[in-house]
């Protein structure tokens, strides 16, 4: 009996290691389920527990500075959050930030990808130089730009302006959101370039030659052949960047702190200030749920895109 049990468990273990090699019997299917269980359970917990708690908190009057006064308030937090002028500013800033960075990185990315796809000397090195900013820690990127480029006294931009006889600009005070857009775009332009370049390089050379034989010039070749070929990569770039850009945080925290006023506060940052600076758990939770809803609208499209791709 014991021997049989032992040999059964050895078999079980070996199939666990190698669920692959066996035929899809009911037995291996349960092994497969066992192998997936840790990931699925952890992710499920990670998704449902905080989200559930956030929803719960969002229905409470709950301030960390006044412990013990929690009470149920229904949708009041949502009412306050959604009617707060700061929310409209934050929503507008979020959209401008996402839109601005997307515009720069997609259009710039297409142009850079087209450029890098041309024959040249040292292509590999240029590629490395262009891609580098994507690997820079967000706090480093933000601080380097803030101090060494955008500082109105010591920044390189100030020096450039003076060189041409112009009045140096106090970037972060005068155009805070634009400054954040520039910093974030600098980090994401390489990402778009890299992905679009990869897509571009997978374009069949014969297809381009066929188009040339059919009498297409460089511009019609771009519009009718290259652009449609890149369409899917562009969509992927837009969707993935949107997911990340909706949550831009570090760049705002270390440069403008959302200011002046709320001029560079996005929704993520607004929720952060309510939660960890004003300790308004209820209000911040309502804000968090609003952010989740916004992100989900984008996510649905992305999931569909990638899902379709899985079948191909």
């Amino acid at each position: 009996m014991a021997v049989r049990f032992l040999s059964a468990s050895v078999l079980y273990l070996s199939e666990y290691i190698l669920g692959a090699a066996k035929m899809a019997t009911i037995h291996t299917r349960s092994v497969a389920r066992l192998m997936m269980a840790p990931s699925v359970i952890l992710l499920f917990a990670w998704m449902i527990v905080p989200l559930g708690m956030t929803i719960y908190f969002s229905l409470l009057r709950y301030n960390l500075l006044m412990p013990g006064t929690e009470e149920f308030t229904g949708l009041l937090n949502y009412e306050f959050f959604l009617t707060d002028p700061a929310f409209f500013d934050a929503l507008k800033n979020t959209l401008l930030l996402v839109g601005g960075v997307l515009a720069i990185s997609v259009i710039g990315g297409i142009l850079m990808a087209l450029l890098l796809d041309q024959p040249m000397f040292g292509q590999g090195i240029v590629r490395i130089l262009v891609i580098a900013p994507f690997f820079i820690m967000p706090t480093v990127a933000a601080l380097v730009w803030k101090n060494m480029f955008m500082n109105p006294v010591n920044g390189l931009f100030a020096w450039l302006f003076r060189l041409f006889g112009a009045q140096p600009l106090d970037w972060l005070a005068v155009a805070p959101l634009t400054s954040v857009v520039i910093i974030v775009a600098w980090q994401w332009l390489p990402f778009a370039t890299l992905i679009l370049l990869t897509a571009l390089q997978s374009l069949d050379e014969e297809q381009k030659e066929a188009a040339e034989m059919d009498g297409a010039g460089p511009i019609s070749k771009f519009i009718y052949i290259t652009l449609p070929h890149m369409a899917r990569a562009i969509t992927v770039v837009v969707l993935i960047e949107t997911i990340f850009l909706l949550s831009v945080f570090a760049e705002i925290l270390v440069t403008t702190n959302g200011g002046p006023g709320t001029q560079s506060t996005n929704i993520t940052y607004l929720v952060y200030t309510q939660a960890l600076l004003q300790f308004d758990v209820g209000g911040a939770s309502a804000g968090g749920i609003v952010a989740v809803v916004l992100a989900n609208i984008v996510a649905i499209f992305l999931i569909r895109m990638i899902g379709k791709n899985l079948e191909a």
Partner: peptide, 29 residues
């Protein structure tokens, strides 16, 4: 990858969707 079922794709998509939840949704808890 090696013993896919009909639901494998759904599980993968669902996993991906958890990545899309903005961190502020979970920050406070």
């Amino acid at each position: 990858a090696f013993s896919p079922t009909k639901r494998t794709k759904d599980v993968l998509m669902w996993m991906l969707s958890t990545k899309m939840m903005p961190p502020v949704g979970a920050l406070i808890p």
